Simulated scan of single mutants.
Amino acid sequence: MSTVIEQAVQARLVASAPQMESVPTTLRYDPADPFAVSMEFPPPATLEGTQVSWAFSRELLTEGMEAPTGLGDVRVRPYGYDRTVVEFHAPEGTAVIHIRSSELRRFLERAQGLVPAGREHLHLGLDEDLAELLRDAC
């Protein structure tokens, strides 16, 4: 059985003409995918009008709270005293949100309690996957 952490946070969408100033966002961490975190956005906050989920490295989020990081679709950087900026780059455009760093820290501490950084490989289930592959090969 796997314990999944979900934490609701308020994200502030940065846009020239925002449809909504504050966006209810859900942070998610599942030890079954120990290197990743995800952010889920509700339908009213997206261009498509459907729920959207972005998955990216837990390490990216952790490091981005201290210094700018990320070169791809997701970039994270500190902003001011207690804000962290997360940028999501897609062909349709870029979404920029601000989240309270204290909320991110609390989420990451909870994830760290489930799977400490550097111990993620112990939660990948490689032995079970290998056994299944070998069982199918016989």
Results as ranks from 00 to 15, higher is better:
residue 101 S to R: 09
residue 122 L to K: 05
residue 6 E to R: 02
residue 49 G to E: 02
residue 89 H to G: 02
residue 39 M to L: 13
residue 89 H to E: 07
residue 135 R to Q: 09
residue 105 R to F: 06
residue 116 P to V: 02
residue 70 G to C: 09
residue 32 A to C: 02
residue 138 C to T: 10
residue 96 V to F: 02
residue 124 L to Y: 13
residue 21 E to K: 07
residue 125 G to P: 05
residue 96 V to Q: 09
residue 120 E to A: 00
residue 21 E to S: 04
residue 105 R to I: 09
residue 120 E to D: 00
residue 90 A to T: 15
residue 85 V to Q: 04
residue 45 A to Q: 15
residue 17 A to Q: 15
residue 130 L to Q: 14
residue 101 S to I: 03
residue 132 E to N: 14
residue 66 E to M: 08
residue 76 V to S: 05
residue 137 A to I: 12
residue 43 P to H: 13
residue 67 A to Y: 07
residue 43 P to W: 08
residue 125 G to Q: 13
residue 99 I to H: 06
residue 25 T to A: 05
residue 123 H to C: 09
residue 80 G to H: 10
residue 53 S to K: 12
residue 101 S to N: 03
residue 87 E to G: 00
residue 85 V to W: 00
residue 20 M to C: 05
residue 122 L to V: 01
residue 40 E to T: 09
residue 67 A to F: 11
residue 65 M to I: 00
residue 18 P to W: 12
residue 11 A to L: 10
residue 29 Y to D: 09
residue 23 V to H: 12
residue 104 L to K: 04
residue 79 Y to A: 09
residue 57 S to V: 00
residue 24 P to D: 07
residue 124 L to F: 14
residue 85 V to A: 03
residue 6 E to V: 05
residue 16 S to M: 15
residue 137 A to F: 08
residue 74 V to L: 14
residue 125 G to R: 11
residue 103 E to P: 01
residue 62 T to N: 03
residue 76 V to W: 13
residue 47 L to M: 08
residue 61 L to H: 01
